[in-house]
Amino acid sequence: GAAEIFVPVLKESKFRETGVLTPEEFVIAGDHLVHHCPTWQWSSGEQSKTKPYLPADKHFLLTKNVPCYRRFHQLEAKGQEKIIEIEGDTDGGWVDTHPDGPGQDSSATSAPVMETAQSTGGKAAAGAADSDDDDDEEAGDMEDFLDSGMLDANDPGTLLPTTVKTPSQSAEEEGIEQTRTYDLHITYDKYYQTPRLWLIGYNEARKPLSVEQMYEDFSADHAKKTITMESHPHVSGPPMASIHPCRHAEVMKKIIQTVADGGRELDVHNYLVIFLKFVQAVIPTIEYDYTRNFSF
């Protein structure tokens, strides 16, 4: 947004006091994540979108093709939802960008910039859901482009992808058919001075999911309050879903405090590992990797 341009880059570490990160600390924490969880990798993004305050080859972190085997309601039904609760904050309220509830707009919120994004987000989501219907219609017309007589049609050495339904499909494979995947990106948000998580979902046929469809994979409590549609800072293209960062620093500060109360000191290296652990409350069905053996 426009506000970002005028916010100076954070120079001094304020991590312990406020839970925010400098770009340098973001890179340190990113290197640590990549080292321990190599499914995460640095990306340079598009050259036209290079930011001077980040190293050229370390603009954002990404992990691709992360499975999402079940929808959120299935998880909820089984009582398996694991939400990290911070002491004295039982609703994990860090994600609640609308403390007064999603119905009430524009008042009593600490993040007016986010507010605008939120309201467009809602409409974009509805639009995307519409497009999905369009897409099916179009696809129906266009799938006439079939080719027959190719050797492919009866090649004994080819096994078709499991996502393609075949008459002989076993019970186990029927479960596989439901597997959606996500690409996750972590960028540095210059305005909020925290990491920011982006989500790009794909259905079983690897077509992009609309936001409404992605809501099925987000915690019902958090989804509409927390996910906004905005432009990715390093990759051009349509707006993408992201977990709004306006409460991230606050939650990190609480975690740092909790750890300190336990007589230990949280190192900035671990920032992203902890960050990924706490955003799991929002996306419990997306099975991305982070080092689980970190306790606080």
Partner: peptide, 9 residues
């Protein structure tokens, strides 16, 4: 599962 092109809107 047919031999044919795909489309995305």
């Amino acid at each position: 599962g047919k031999l044919g092109s795909r489309h995305v809107n």
